[in-house]
Write a protein that binds this DNA or RNA. Structure first.
Lengths: 183, 183
DNA sequence: GGGATTCTGGAGCGATCGCTCAGGTAGTGT
DNA sequence: ACACTACCTGAGCGATCGCTCCAGAATCCC
C-alpha cells in the first residue's frame, strides 16, 4: 500500500464533486447539471470535473447510483409500518428537495436503457419491504408507498396521513377504521 | 366573426407546435425541448416558435397545461374500479412514453412555484376519483393509483395486476383475497 | 387597385454547452 | 538536490442554446 497523499486528495475531490452534483440536482434539477455548474458548486475548476469523470454524463450516472444505494438502504432498515410512516412524513416535510431530486434521477433511469437495472433495484427494494411488512397485502402496500412518495413531492403529507393509509392497507375491515386514527 | 384565413392558418401552426412539443417530450424528455428541436419536429422554421409563443418556456408550460387537461378529463370519465384498472393497464402497455412524458411535466410543475396550481389540479382529480369510487377507502385508493401510475412507467403492469390491487383496496377482509385472484 | 394586418423565415448576436489539450504544479523515490 | 510521475488547470474549439431583427410573402379591408 502506498499512502500516496496525491491519490488521497484526488479521491476527496471526486467525492466532493458527487455531492455537489446531488445538491445541484436537488436545487435546480437534472437539466442544470453541467460541467461548470457542478464545478462551481464544489468550488473546483471546471476542468477538474472531466479529470475525475470521463464525461459529465458519467458523473450524473454515478451520482444516481449513489442516490439509489441510499434509498434502498433506507428502505431495508425500516422495521415496521409505523416506522415507514414516519419516514414518509419526514420525506414530505424536511426532505422535499431530496425527494424531487430522486424523482428526477428516477425519471432519467426510466428513459435510458443502460440504467434499467437501477430501476429494478428501486422496485425490488420497495417490493421486498412490502412483502416483509405486510405479506398478504404486499402489492397494495407497495403501490401505496409509491403513491405516498409521489405525494410527498407535491404537498405536505403529515405523519398521521401516512399512518392512516398504511393502517387502511392492512386493516381487516374498512369499517374498523373508525376505531382509531390518531395514534 | 371574421373567418380570417391568416389567423386560421396561424392557429393551426400554433397547435402543430404544441403537439410537436409533446412528441419531443415523450421521445427525448423535457430537456430536449428547444426552439430548434420543436420547430424541426413540427416542420416549421425555428423563428416560427417564437412568433407563436413569447418564449420557449411558455410553449412548454402551455403544453404542460394541455397534458394536465387531458389527464384530468380521462380520470373524470372513469366509471368503476374495473374501468380504472383497464386504464392503468393501457398506460403501462401502450402509453409508456406518454406516462413518462407526463411525469417529466409533473416534475417540472413540482419544481416551479408558478405551476403549483397545475399540481393541485392533478392531485384534486385523483382525490375526486378516489372519493367517487371508494368513499371509505379514498386515501388508500388515491395512493395506490399514484403508485401504480409510477410503476406503469417502470415495468409492464398487466390488467390483472391493477385489478388485483384495486380489489385489495376495497375488499372487506384480507383473508377473503383467497377467494379469487386469477380471474 | 392601395394600404394595413398577419404571417414567414433567414441571418446572426451573445451566452453556454461538453470536451480537448498542452503545459504547470506538487508529491514520490533515490 | 534530482528526475520522475501523477495530479491538476486555464485557454479555447465547435456546437447549440434562446432570442431579436427585419425584409418579404400572403391575406383581408376598402
Amino acid at each position: 500500500m502506498s499512502p500516496d497523499g496525491r491519490r488521497a486528495k484526488g479521491a476527496l475531490r471526486r467525492r466532493a464533486l458527487l455531492e455537489a452534483t446531488l445538491r445541484v440536482v436537488g436545487r435546480e434539477g437534472v437539466a442544470a447539471v453541467s460541467q461548470r455548474a457542478v464545478a462551481a458548486e464544489a468550488d473546483v475548476p471546471p476542468s477538474a470535473v472531466l479529470y475525475y469523470f470521463p464525461s459529465v454524463d458519467s458523473l450524473l450516472v454515478t451520482a444516481l447510483r449513489e442516490v439509489n444505494d441510499r434509498y434502498c438502504a433506507e428502505l431495508a432498515a425500516v422495521t415496521s409500518l409505523a416506522d415507514l410512516a414516519s419516514h414518509v412524513a419526514r420525506w414530505a416535510t424536511q426532505d422535499r428537495d431530496r425527494v424531487i431530486a430522486e424523482y428526477e434521477l428516477w425519471l432519467l433511469a426510466a428513459r435510458r436503457a443502460d440504467l434499467r437495472d437501477e430501476l429494478r433495484r428501486w422496485d425490488d427494494a420497495v417490493d421486498a419491504l412490502a412483502a416483509r411488512l405486510a405479506p398478504e397485502r404486499a402489492e397494495v402496500l407497495a403501490a401505496a408507498l409509491n403513491g405516498l412518495y409521489l405525494r410527498a413531492a407535491t404537498v405536505g403529507t403529515t405523519h398521521t396521513d401516512a399512518a392512516r393509509v398504511f393502517d387502511a392497507v392492512v386493516v381487516t375491515s374498512p369499517s374498523s377504521k373508525l376505531g382509531k386514527s390518531g395514534h
